[in-house]
Amino acid sequence: MLTRLLLVIALLAGFGLSPALAAPDGAKLYGRNCAACHGENGTGGIGVPLALPAFQAGVSDDYLRKTIRHGRPGRVMPAFSQLDQAEIEAIVRHVRTWNKGAPATYSARPVKGDPVHGKKLFAQYCADCHGANGEGGKGTGVTFSRPRDLPIMAPALHNPGFLVAASDAMIKATLMRGREGTPMVSFLKQGLKEKDIDDIVSYVRAFEKQPLPGSAQLLKVESPVIVRDSDYDLQTTVENVKRAVSNNNFFYGRVQTLEYGLTDPANENPKQVIVYFCNISMLNQALAIDPRVGMFLPCRVTILETNGKVQVMSVNPGVLSRLFNNSELNRLCDEMSKSYTAIIEEATL
């Protein structure tokens, strides 16, 4: 066994490495997975500012680990299931380089309180920021460069990712101390007693037994692609799609081959085309919720002829809310999916 270990060390040394240097690089992993939302130096952006002293002092390493692992379903923060435990630990260590004191540690012991009374207090002191049912502040995590109502958007408390990551003791400490640099104030300074805070914690923990709010739900779609066969020839099908686009309150943009810009024009396949179209009102709403929708603009339907058989297909917009982990897109994605389906079915009937 010792001989094998020495051999491994020798091989690593031969490549200019050591066992210590072979460990995951937390800074690189953070830059690749976290910086786009939380800022290169943890100053925040779409996500919360991780370098904020009050945040660093208020959360435990375990909270950070579980947040990375489970994310926040429906609230843009993804679950990084592709990272192994060593990589998660490396990111946590990197995040802690911004900490000027010892990281917080909390007991796993449940806080006992009266959730019925806690519900009344929650409505009075918490709902304005965190939502009436703990669903989170409107626009949380999806503001991007748009104006915010609050400097840091209030997180969703009725969310499986938050509830699995935050212990009762951490929630209680946050309520008692507040979080300097954010709208979260000390509830003790608001006149509440420790018993009142215990009641609020008990109410928040009771979310685990309630159905998920809409903010934590993503659209379920049967297929990421909408596909229909057409009994018409390619050109007739294209004209049918253009007409169906107008009939469904979209405006027609253009038709081009699938390979346009990817190969010499003489080599483009004329039996593979895309019809572009748009509904400005609907897309403005979607972009206001999540600008990443722009990657899928303009709207398009693809028409292919293979061995004399014509098919019409498009991406199912319903996958966008799941892809972006953004429940606020649900309604619009559902509407767009129905519109795409109506256009394709009208063109192929």
Rank of each mutant, 00 (worst) to 15 (best):
R109C: 07
T236F: 05
G113P: 05
G118N: 04
A206L: 12
R205W: 09
A35M: 09
Q82A: 13
G139Y: 05
D264M: 13
P151F: 07
E346L: 08
F250V: 12
P213T: 01
K242G: 11
Q124H: 08
A286W: 02
E268V: 12
H70G: 03
L258A: 08
G74R: 00
F80M: 10
L17K: 15
N307H: 10
L50S: 11
S167P: 07
S321L: 04
R254P: 10
V273N: 01
G139T: 07
Q256N: 14
I303K: 00
I344E: 03
P298W: 04
T306F: 06
C37K: 06
L2P: 04
I274N: 01
E239T: 11
G137L: 07
S145K: 08
N240W: 04
L323T: 13
P103D: 10
P298I: 00
A90L: 00
N307L: 07
G44R: 02
I46S: 13
D84Q: 07
R292Q: 14
M282R: 15
S186E: 06
T263I: 15
V315I: 13
G318F: 03
R75C: 10
I91F: 06
I46P: 11
G26E: 04
E305S: 12
P155H: 01
K172C: 01
V76E: 04
H38N: 03
V116E: 14
P224T: 05
Q85V: 14
P24N: 01
W98Q: 14
L287M: 15
T140V: 10
R331H: 07
L64H: 10
P151S: 11
V275P: 10
P73Y: 01
L29S: 05
A132F: 09
R109K: 15
R32L: 12
Y106C: 11
E180F: 07
V111M: 09
S314V: 06
P270F: 10
S223D: 12
A54T: 08
N33F: 10
G134R: 07
F55N: 03
G26Q: 11
S230K: 00
M176P: 03
A79Q: 08
S18K: 11
N247Q: 15
Q82H: 14
K271E: 13
L323S: 12
M184N: 05
G42Y: 03
D84R: 03
A13F: 09
T143V: 10
L218A: 13
G261K: 04
A244P: 02
T302Y: 06
T3P: 00
F144T: 03
A266M: 07
L234Y: 09
